[in-house]
Design a protein around this nucleic acid. Structure first.
Length: 488
RNA sequence: CGGGGAGUGGCGCAGCCCGGUAGCGCAUUCGCUUUGGGAGCGAAGGGUCGCAGGUUCAAAUCCUGUCUCCCCGACCA
């Protein structure tokens, strides 16, 4: 078999790129750091989007859309926020081109009076709008989400994990009380955890970021962190409690039931196409992509095996009721009846693309009233009677979904360690993985650890060991262990 | 943005040092034989050698600039 995908242990980065290429998820674009999301990648995103969107709707959110362009002055209104994003904003300075000999150039006459920035995130333009929408406590809460693209001018990019333009959703909510906003922040974090674990089959740790890793402009940033197969951590989603920072910056006040004018409390939360990168690195293997059934664009592929037209039509005839029954059960089925590829070629191709279940139907199966069922995750094959196939397959899809999560969870647990001393920590971090250790809570110590080991504090976990101790570096008191890892 | 590597039919590569009319494998098209793990034979089509300048009788090859990708750093979802 011609191997087109680099083995993970030979070169993990190359493997990641090969999987994306062979699964036809995305291409590089002519513009540095941008990507073309191909139909296979986009339908995966659409599935993720569909699930998340209904989860947002169930928690009372509505979708809206705010502009791509933001007046430059808006960004400078919240001091921390500017500092965080200033270095990575695309700026629009001109409005047109003019033809010149051999092409076009920017028309110097068209310089904009106020330059526009391409949104790196939309807090500013949204809070500017909220000012006009909010007068009374009766106008609150505002629970809005938008699906959009954003641009961050990154130095170093990787397909899905960090691109200059990416697709995401950003929720922006406004509340009358601090408590309500904090509850919203945690509720959405829980939505993300549920989505990651129950749909992506990607186990995560939930926690709060340290001040140095916090979102620019937030009071607290909560996150879901997951461990990839190479032992590096990926921040998969964030939910921010913004306090009154943006309300103050954009002067958004409401009159409360007690007659007082008060600043509004805010949250924002988002996940992006980066999740696709996380999905790839959580489940895929040296044969290509492995997808959880709940998100796979195609859950079952049927490959007829035939030597001639007669056998082909028999196989198709045999497959037809099965396809119908599976579809009636809500299973997405694709029949691969192309005759310009041999079965073996198709097997390899669908494996590379991550289709959870493959069914082969050949003359032998038809004769015996069977089908051959192969699982993508374990590569296991078995012959089953066609009569039982619909129920076997719907059950198998559920089993695969669970097994993928369990396998990923086991890997994450096996790669999670506790370090009591800094010496121990330095040794452990070389093997990758999550490491719990005591930390004195200061930025200096965090920075020292980062400089010496390249590991960062991924989060201060919300659930877990609450035992106090002493910082592994300084020996100062520590309330509880925090989670370290090298990260993407 | 600094250091290293790379860009040649759709994909993977050779040719470059030492300039002389662009080649291989896979894929594509047609025909025949094939089809239970990436089929075989025969024929055919397809390339501004990343882009822009320059040197030269002549540039994929030499020189300059520039764009994109990969790896490693600093910065970030």
């Amino acid at each position: 078999m011609a191997k087109r995908i680099t083995n993970r242990e030979d070169d993990y980065s190359q493997w990641y790129l090969d999987v994306i290429k062979e699964a036809k998820l995305a291409d590089h674009s002519p513009v540095r750091g941008c990507m073309v999301i191909r139909p296979n990648g986009f339908s995966l995103w659409e599935n993720m989007k569909g699930v998340l969107d209904s989860m947002f709707k169930k928690t009372g959110h509505e979708n809206a859309y705010f502009p791509l362009f933001i007046p430059k002055s808006f960004l400078s209104k919240e001091a921390q926020h500017v500092e965080g994003f200033a270095k990575e904003c695309a700026v629009i300075t001109h409005s047109r081109l003019k033809s010149v000999e051999g092409g076009v150039e920017v028309d110097p006459e068209s310089r904009l009076e106020e330059e526009l920035i391409v949104r790196p995130t939309s807090e500013t333009i949204i809070w500017d709008a909220y000012r006009g929408w909010i007068q009374s406590y009766r106008d609150l809460p505002i629970l809005i989400n938008q699906w959009a693209n954003v641009v961050r001018w990154e130095m170093r990019t990787r397909l899905f994990l960090r691109t200059m333009e990416f697709l995401w959703q950003e929720g922006h909510t406004a509340h009358a009380t601090e408590q309500e906003a904090v509850e919203e922040t945690l509720q959405m974090l829980e939505v993300y955890r549920t989505f990651a674990e129950d749909y992506m089959a990607m186990p995560v740790v939930t926690g709060v970021k340290t001040s140095s890793e916090r979102f620019a402009g937030a009071v607290d940033t909560y996150c879901i962190e997951s461990l990839m197969q190479d032992g590096k951590a990926l921040q998969a989603g964030t939910s921010h409690f913004l306090g009154q920072n943006f309300a103050k910056a954009f002067d958004v006040k409401f009159q409360d039931s007690d007659g007082e004018h008060k600043y509004v409390w805010a949250t924002s939360w988002g996940v992006s196409t980066r999740l696709i990168g996380g999905l790839i690195m959580t489940h895929s293997d040296d044969n290509g992509l492995v997808l959880p059934p709940k998100l796979a664009p195609t859950q079952v592929v049927i490959i007829p095996i035939f030597k001639n037209d007669d056998q082909k039509s028999k196989a198709l005839y045999y497959a037809e009721p099965l396809i119908r029954e599976l579809r009636d059960n809500g299973v997405s089925v694709k029949l691969d009846d192309r005759d310009n590829f041999k079965p073996g070629w198709k097997f390899a191709e669908h494996e590379a693309q991550g289709t959870p279940i493959r069914i082969a139907i050949g003359p032998r199966d038809i004769e015996n009233g069977n089908i051959e069922v192969a699982r993508r995750d374990t590569l296991e094959k078995k012959i089953i009677p066609v009569k039982e196939s619909a129920s076997v397959i719907t059950t198998l899809l559920e089993t695969i979904q669970i097994d993928l999560f369990e396998a990923a969870k086991k890997r994450q647990d096996d790669s999670t360690k506790h370090a009591e001393t800094y010496e121990e920590f330095k040794v452990m971090i070389e093997d990758g993985g999550f490491i719990y250790a005591h930390w004195d809570g200061t930025e200096q110590t965090e920075l020292k650890i980062k400089e010496e080991t390249k590991a960062t504090i991924r989060c201060i976990p919300l659930h877990g060991d609450e035992t106090p101790g002493t910082c592994m570096v300084t020996g100062k008191p520590s309330a509880k262990k925090v989670l370290f890892a090298r990260s993407y």
